[in-house]
């Protein structure tokens, strides 16, 4: 055993073998660490994105809003409290109200006098 340790050519063979093993082991890791370099050219990616139709904000909202089911005409449903949606739609909208409202004519007799 002592004689093998003392022979320098054995150490040289072991060193070459170790370096070779390291090169084989580290090469795939280096490829994984640099994916952008391996990706397709930027011009190609941009072209692909632009070719897709842009998302429509309105259609997105519509898709997210549940669509009310059409009532079955053959089934008559009597609600406890009727919907007031139409009342609210007008009576919270000042512009609509101004269009629709009829101001009652203020009627005060010219003969009225004094404190009521």
């Amino acid at each position: 055993m002592k004689s093998i340790v003392k022979r320098p050519w054995i150490w040289a063979i072991l060193g070459v073998a170790l370096v070779g093993a390291l090169v084989v082991f580290l090469r795939p890791a280096a490829e994984l660490a640099l994916p952008s370099e391996a990706a397709a050219p930027a011009a190609v990616v941009e072209s692909d994105i632009l070719s897709e139709p842009a998302p429509d904000a309105v259609s997105m909202v519509v898709q997210e809003t549940p669509v009310p089911q059409q009532p079955d005409a053959s089934v008559q449903v009597v609600a406890d409290t009727p919907s007031s949606d139409n009342c609210i739609a007008c009576h919270t909208n000042q512009a609509v109200l101004e269009q629709l409202a009829e101001e009652p004519e203020e009627v005060v007799s010219e003969l009225a006098a004094g404190e009521g």
């Binding site: 009727p82 007031s84 009576h91």
Partner: peptide, 27 residues
């Protein structure tokens, strides 16, 4: 008669306008 939207969060709005005032729904 302009109704403040804050009223819609009030408990008194829960039954709906027609429950107190009458009138016709859906038109």
């Amino acid at each position: 008669m302009l109704v403040d939207e804050k009223f819609l969060d009030d408990v008194h709005a829960e039954p709906g306008c027609i429950a107190c005032h009458g009138g016709q729904p859906g038109v």
